[in-house]
Write a protein that binds this DNA or RNA. Structure first.
Lengths: 207, 207
DNA sequence: CCTTGTGAAAACTTTCACAGCT
DNA sequence: AGCTGTGAAAGTTTTCACAAGG
């Protein structure tokens, strides 16, 4: 499986997964790519192509086994086991993400939170203790965490990201509206709210 | 300007804009595409191509005038005037977004918030009054709002989105982890936190 | 007859490299 | 000499359409 996989393929896998989980709860055990199209508005071709990057999980004339496909997609993404994640920057957005349920249902668990504000350190959110940034390294090493959600202010982001990387973090989901400069073996995924809203505004203007 | 503009081009424009504003504050008045490359880590070619979809704003041998380019990019995106935005779903993420400063500095202003929880209705966040969903239509008409940020729970999203569209909303920035089904003249931009985190996890596994 | 899996075509985006203006 | 603007090439992603299997 070492062909180049489009990033949108992976993001669609998450949508498939959520839909399949829903079907499973309803007791449905088979699904066809055409039903994906009807329910998720993603072309059946694209669903089959997305899946086919990773193997042959369907039966011709029949479709896909729901439970089996769920397991396969989880394995593909790497969330068949629980994935430990830390969060740095317990502001409003950070707090909202700590409490967000959408991660846990997909086996992604925020197990620690960090900040540099003495007023916040020591408190708990959702059972997650907020720790001092200087405890980051020990924690990351001890828990062997690889993934970090970064929700610090823009002017702190670069500096804090460097600390995270030095601590052993390999991937950063960055919500700060800056381009981080990090070694290229570190994977960065930027989520920029204003950029997304700006894109929407542009599209409306050019309907 | 009716060629097809890559969506990433528009998202990069926001990054250029923020950087240019920074330079302007520092008193810099000219910039070359090569400096963009050094500071933002975006190839100078790509910067020039991005800009060139919309016109010729530079001077050969010299570069781009910072103030002028800021104005042009704002015009391109459609944020040269203040853009009114409403937000539906004043949960934790919704509240965080209402307080987020990154929108206002780009001329995108959340002018109203809506929820269906009686405990929230009537309260204020950041000077924004939280209104009942049944006031949405009047408000949207009166204020002539076209853009909505949707931060309601997944199981409500489709229904609430329909109400927004009936009220006159034309574009939705959707944070609910569902694929909305709306008339195709409505533009939807999905931001899916779990999907982004999942993508990151996948990339790390396949380093 | 139904639905998958997939090469091949089409569409889209980025990168290249250089002509042309200052 | 320096930097932009841009066609053309390369690379990537989606769509098409159909052969093959149940």
């Amino acid at each position: 499986m070492k062909k180049n996989i489009p990033s949108d393929t992976i993001k669609r896998l998450i949508y498939y997964l959520r839909y399949l989980e829903e079907l499973k709860e309803k007791g449905k055990d088979m699904i066809s790519s055409n039903e994906i199209n009807i329910s998720l508005n993603i072309p059946s071709n694209q669903f089959r192509k997305d899946i086919s990057y990773f193997g042959k999980f369907g039966k011709r004339g029949v479709g896909y086994n729901v439970t089996n496909l769920i397991e396969e997609i989880k394995k593909i993404i790497g969330i068949d086991k629980k994935i430990k994640v830390i969060l740095i920057g317990v502001g409003r957005l950070g707090s909202a993400l700590i409490k967000y349920r959408g991660f846990l249902t997909l086996n992604m668990e925020i197990i620690g939170a960090f900040d540099n504000d003495p007023k916040k350190i020591g408190k708990e959110i959702n059972g997650i203790k907020i720790m001092n940034l200087n405890e980051l390294k020990n924690f990351v090493k001890k828990e062997n965490v690889k993934v970090c959600i970064l929700t610090v202010p823009a002017n702190n982001a670069q500096q804090v990201a460097l600390i995270a990387v030095e601590s052993g973090i390999k991937g950063i989901l960055n919500f700060a509206p800056v381009k981080l400069k990090l070694p290229k073996n570190i994977f960065i995924n930027n989520v920029d709210m204003a950029s997304e809203l700006g894109y929407l505004i542009f599209k409306l203007k050019n309907l």
